[in-house]
Design a protein around this nucleic acid. Structure first.
Lengths: 226, 226
DNA sequence: GTCGCCAACATTGTTTACAATGTGTGCGAA
DNA sequence: TTCGCACACATTGTAAACAATGTTGGCGAC
């Protein structure tokens, strides 16, 4: 008895959401096998529900399936994380440009609000708070862009690279680099300069890409130390 | 062939492919209901297989499903087609830049070969041939880019907008506009100029976006004439 | 005549049992 | 010992029956 069952089962939450959350939270590590029968018991759902959930998550790129050999949590390599982030660069660049064209004065206020909060978080060394604000900023840009297609794709990609992204936020010295980039993005959008907004967003994400290898190196060092 | 065909769709491989092809070929029109039992008989498969296929195609954005009310072919509006093409612009721009950086001399030969064939097709008024060459060019750029993430996304988007794209190829006067753009893309990639390749690709797809409303207008006119 | 309700139908969602496939293990022979 | 082979186990894939849900048409009341 895992004891977690009474609270979360009762299938109030669809299996697919529970599984996605479990993977995102790291309860299942990359390459871990996902046996249908086990998950069925874990979530108190039928094997069919688990099966369809696995199908869907395979479509989202969170799990890998091979015929007659089951599913496992997909491990995204550094190279794949770079690829994913390059796609994000292109797509979020597009969204930043659109946001610059479409935003209202009220939207500008919301953007600057996040910018101010970011400055405060960095000043006080609140890494988790800054990480959360980072999510909110990128999310708001996406919302202002009104690009549902790009938005859906970015959401999926975020799920795939959530582990790498999280490590990034904790990388030493990272906020000092990314804060001015964020401010630059916000100001370009508020100024209604689509070209500048796209360029600023791309510069920002390019620097993320350049930092990914360091994050990976730090992770492997930590792993080797065990 | 960025393909590496969905090695994750092991449930009902034949059914899902057959259904996808049927939708792409227009055998099922947008908004047409897809009743599981009917499809089951149509493809000689069990209802379960059809069901998982529908699940997967819903994930690919080709069909829409509402709880307890079944599935239907997703109709992509003009606005959605524009959004999709804007995403394609960003992603294919990225791929063009990568292709410029990574291509070999042999690759350049293949690119120019397609370019020459395109000139010939336009000169002889071979619309279908030109349309096919267009597909091959974009596919080759994608292959040279070696971006499997972007490739998979673009493949999905192509499936969603295949109808609009096809109409586009038949649009009068279109080849005269797109041919020099294609040549420009090819030359920029062969020159190894990533920035120019990306810019050329984006200009090309921007012009596709600008043409989409006309195509839609022509389509509705043809529809009204019936 | 129209509105609302109820019952029959059509269709999807879920559970269960069964078949097919892949994997590992132990036995026997060279 | 070690290699092959066959059998048993674990796991996934498929099918069919059953339950739940939404839809449609008709009947009666106002």
């Amino acid at each position: 008895m895992t004891g977690t069952e009474s609270s979360q089962s009762l299938d109030a939450v669809p299996v697919v959401d529970a599984l996605r959350a479990a993977i995102a939270d790291g309860e299942f590590v990359p390459n871990q096998r996902l046996v249908e029968a086990d998950l069925s018991e874990r979530f108190g759902a039928s094997r069919t529900s688990v099966r369809t959930a696995l199908l869907q998550l395979a479509g989202e790129g969170l799990v890998e399936r091979v015929q007659n050999r089951g599913a496992r949590v997909r491990a995204v390599s550094l190279a794949e994380a770079v690829e994913i982030t390059e796609v994000r660069m292109a797509l979020e660049g597009l969204c930043a440009a659109k946001a610059a064209e479409r935003h209202t004065d009220a939207d500008a206020g919301r953007l600057r609000e996040i910018g101010d909060a970011m400055r405060a978080a960095v000043a006080s060394g609140d890494l988790l708070g800054y990480s959360e604000l980072n999510r909110r900023l990128h999310g708001l840009v996406l919302e202002l862009a009104g690009q549902s297609t790009a938005g859906a794709i970015l959401e999926r990609l975020r799920g795939q690279s959530v582990r790498h992204q999280f490590q990034l936020a904790m990388h030493p010295g990272r906020p000092a680099i990314s804060l001015p980039q964020h401010i630059e993005i916000i100001e370009a959008i508020c100024a209604g300069d689509a070209g500048a907004a796209e360029a600023a967003m791309r510069r920002h994400i390019r620097s993320v890409i350049d930092t990914l290898p360091e994050v990976e190196a730090a992770r492997t060092r930590r792993f080797d130390a065990l």
